[in-house]
Amino acid sequence: MAKQSKQPMSRALQRRENIAGYLFMLPCLIFFIGFVVIPMIICILTSLTDTNMHDPGLIGGSFIGLDNFVRLWGDKDFLAALKNTFVIVIVSVPTVCAFSLWVSSAIYKMKGPVLSAFRCIFYLPVVTGSVAVTVVWAWMYNNYYGIFNYVLKGLGLIEGRINWLGDEKFALGCIILILFTTSVGQPIVLYVSALGNVDQTLIEAAQVDGATEMQVFWKVKWPQMMPTTLYILVITTINSFQCFALIQLLTKGGAGTDTVMYRIYWTAFKLTEQAGHFGYANAMGVVLAIFIGLLSAVQFKLAKEK
């Protein structure tokens, strides 16, 4: 009897706790629905229309089916932007992960203040405003008075000036370098934390069994850091796919640096005289989201197999 009377009370308590939990989630949920889910749905719906920025209402144009998507595959400017975006992702993601893993491995055993100093140094570009960072980089890259040309000429490595941001041979690489410096901060902090949390008893057991440093790292530490690595891979991939501010501030998509994100902005807001840009730009956004989703799914799958 006592057991029977205890059961409903426990359920009521559970229900109350659930309600409280959901209420705590509600603020985030409302903002998530309002600013992520609903815009996403509008984006998908608009991508199936020829909505122009001057059309009234959220989805003001006519339904045109998949015309925007078909048009995208014949749009060589979009395809060039897509290619550049993939170059950024393919170069940036592995280098950011490898570099941050290397730096973290080198610094995670350091004493508190020294470790904090390194964390600060690598995290500084992340917390500094992207405009401020970009202005400094723009000055360093400047064709006429930038420090890179000055130093390289001073060292006799180049004869003339290099137009870092105006020459297709260099511009995309320059963007990737800035993206790299602003992207490594968070992975380093995460890897330092993950390395610090690796089970020491497993490491000691492996060492007792005669494992080398490399074997300890790859066979013991690396598997335990896999969730962190997966998170870093996904976040870095998304950030690289969404590279916009650097392009907007440095090259405006010129010199072979156009990316899908910049093209979306350009198509939606800059070509003000042509009809259908919101719909067409949103179609680009949908394609980009599909690529990001696919790549993230592949990363999850591979990490799970590991």
Binding site: A20, L23, L26, P27, F31
Partner: peptide, 18 residues
């Protein structure tokens, strides 16, 4: 429990406002 109810009510009000 009263505290929880109060917090929940406050949150609900905040949500309604937002």
């Amino acid at each position: 429990m009263k505290m929880k109810k109060l917090v929940a009510a406050a949150l609900a009000a905040a949500m309604a406002l937002s």
